[in-house]
Amino acid sequence: MDSLVVLVLCLSCLLLLSLWRQSSGRGKLPPGPTPLPVIGNILQIGIKDISKSLTNLSKVYGPVFTLYFGLKPIVVLHGYEAVKEALIDLGEEFSGRGIFPLAERANRGFGIVFSNGKKWKEIRRFSLMTLRNFGMGKRSIEDRVQEEARCLVEELRKTKASPCDPTFILGCAPCNVICSIIFHKRFDYKDQQFLNLMEKLNENIKILSSPWIQICNNFSPIIDYFPGTHNKLLKNVAFMKSYILEKVKEHQESMDMNNPQDFIDCFLMKMEKEKHNQPSEFTIESLENTAVDLFGAGTETTSTTLRYALLLLLKHPEVTAKVQEEIERVIGRNRSPCMQDRSHMPYTDAVVHEVQRYIDLLPTSLPHAVTCDIKFRNYLIPKGTTILISLTSVLHDNKEFPNPEMFDPHHFLDEGGNFKKSKYFMPFSAGKRICVGEALAGMELFLFLTSILQNFNLKSLVDPKNLDTTPVVNGFASVPPFYQLCFIPV
């Protein structure tokens, strides 16, 4: 009986604490739906499609509103004006990374994606500088992407125009580009180590996009005490870190300090320079996690976009025909596509942009946080508050993009057929937390897609009208449904 009384008292205290925290903070924060004790607004949000729920709530509470995930307040920004004001106009104040408990377990605050403060700034600055020195957006990395595009075309030829699921092959190409940047090595598509790495990356994007992960991140005790797919994700990350550590040891034994070959060499050189400046942010643990982040951000996002792009091109054969006509006119058949071609191919450029806009790969991006107490639109948001960005509300804005739910390359073309930029184009987020590999991803999408369409016609196994382009999961990332196609050599 005594234990029951204690339990009831504990629960009562928890409920009172929950109510007090919510009521004391709500006077400062933007308005929002009334949260339930302990669980907050979790029942009012469709976990399978958070973005749709945010759109519905914005119609009631406006472009800036507050939700509670458990006891934790989260300020939501919906629509271009609110997102721009926060991420661009007040970029420094909104540059923090929001709480992501599962990532905390995986990387302990290291790396480039989930770190904060001085650690994040130094690692991000170093990573950007190193990638630029190796030619991100310049010639040397373009050579690597072109080489991988040629290998991709050869792998597709091996399908002999038979029906195939493109998931694996389209994942190999961007993964190999990242391998060449980090390890100075590309792998054969049949290499077992490479296959294991690909498998872990593919599993992780599916797990991260599941409703279960949303629950884990908002009720963090689940991570330590409950079984579930989150444990598989943590094991996959541990596998990748151990693999990278092996490569780091190989580099330490063979590195030429006067001739760095890749990202690992550059990081080890930085560690050597910083060894007298303790404590340094440049450690082996930081290198492991930064490399894992580059793999995660640079492989599955690009391969998922490529997979979605081919599905949309199957669905819209008239678009595919126009792209192939432009390829034939500008590039021809006797040389590989290059980035200089893009400025002469406005329709193809528009298609690449429209694919990214339409699929809305990361509907709410990753959570941000404010780095200080900030007054925002007459609300006071306390330091450390998590900020949720609705990228969907920007990419699918119906004023900027008429009929935003329709796939239409003319969203990025003017009346004369010239490519038209849009400030609403934010597939990689915006501001200080914009994806480090934005330029690389854009290069890969253009070169891989043009190389495929230069060499193959795409054949659907069903009537294009019957192809479903609805994402199968739409949590962290929008993942396309399973499909097969035939690559018919031109």
Rank of each mutant, 00 (worst) to 15 (best):
S3L: 13
V5E: 11
V6R: 10
C10Y: 07
L11V: 14
L11C: 15
L11S: 11
C13A: 14
L14G: 15
S23M: 14
S23P: 11
L29S: 03
P33G: 02
T34F: 10
I39P: 02
I42A: 13
L54D: 03
V64K: 03
L71G: 12
K72R: 12
V76N: 03
V76S: 03
L77T: 03
L77C: 07
L77G: 01
H78N: 13
G79P: 01
G79R: 03
E81V: 07
V83C: 13
L87V: 15
L90W: 13
F94K: 02
F100S: 15
F100I: 15
A103M: 15
A103G: 15
E104P: 07
N107I: 05
N107K: 02
R108T: 13
R108S: 12
F110S: 10
I112R: 00
I112C: 15
G117S: 11
K119S: 15
W120F: 07
W120C: 09
I123D: 09
R124W: 03
F134S: 12
M136K: 09
K138G: 13
E142C: 03
A149M: 04
C151Q: 09
A161F: 02
A161V: 03
S162G: 11
P163M: 05
P163S: 04
D165N: 05
T167M: 04
I169N: 02
C175H: 02
V177S: 00
I182V: 07
F183W: 07
R186C: 01
Y189S: 01
K190A: 12
Q193H: 09
L197G: 01
L201I: 10
E203G: 03
I205W: 13
I205P: 02
I205F: 15
K206A: 10
K206T: 07
I207L: 14
L208K: 08
S209Q: 14
W212L: 10
I213A: 15
Q214A: 14
I215N: 05
N217I: 05
S220Q: 13
P221F: 13
D224H: 12
P227C: 15
G228S: 09
L233D: 03
K235V: 05
A238C: 08
I244S: 03
K247N: 06
Q252P: 04
Q261R: 15
L268D: 02
E272H: 10
K273W: 06
Q278V: 11
S280V: 10
I284C: 06
I284N: 06
E285Q: 09
E288V: 15
V292G: 05
D293Y: 02
D293F: 04
L294T: 02
G296C: 04
G298I: 00
T299N: 02
T299Q: 04
T304R: 14
R307S: 04
Y308C: 04
L311S: 01
L311A: 03
P317F: 04
V319S: 06
I331Q: 04
R335K: 10
Q340T: 12
Q340H: 10
T348R: 00
T348N: 03
V351G: 01
V352G: 03
V352H: 02
V352T: 11
V355E: 01
Q356H: 08
I359Q: 08
P363L: 00
A369Y: 15
V370L: 15
T371W: 05
T371G: 10
T371R: 09
C372P: 00
I374G: 03
K375A: 09
R377S: 07
N378S: 09
Y379K: 05
L380F: 13
K383G: 05
G384H: 06
T385E: 04
I387W: 03
L388Q: 03
I389T: 11
I389D: 02
S390R: 11
L391N: 11
S393R: 04
H396G: 09
D397T: 07
N403Q: 11
M406K: 14
D408G: 01
P409L: 02
P409D: 02
H411M: 02
H411L: 01
L413H: 02
L413G: 01
N418P: 04
K423V: 07
F425G: 07
P427R: 02
F428L: 07
V436M: 15
A441V: 12
G442A: 14
L445K: 03
L445E: 06
L445F: 10
L445N: 12
T450P: 00
S451C: 09
L453A: 03
L453H: 00
N455K: 08
K459Q: 14
K459V: 10
V462P: 03
T469Y: 05
P471M: 07
V472S: 08
N474R: 13
F476M: 15
P480H: 02
F482D: 14
Y483P: 04
Q484V: 04
Q484C: 04
L485I: 14
L485T: 04
I488T: 11
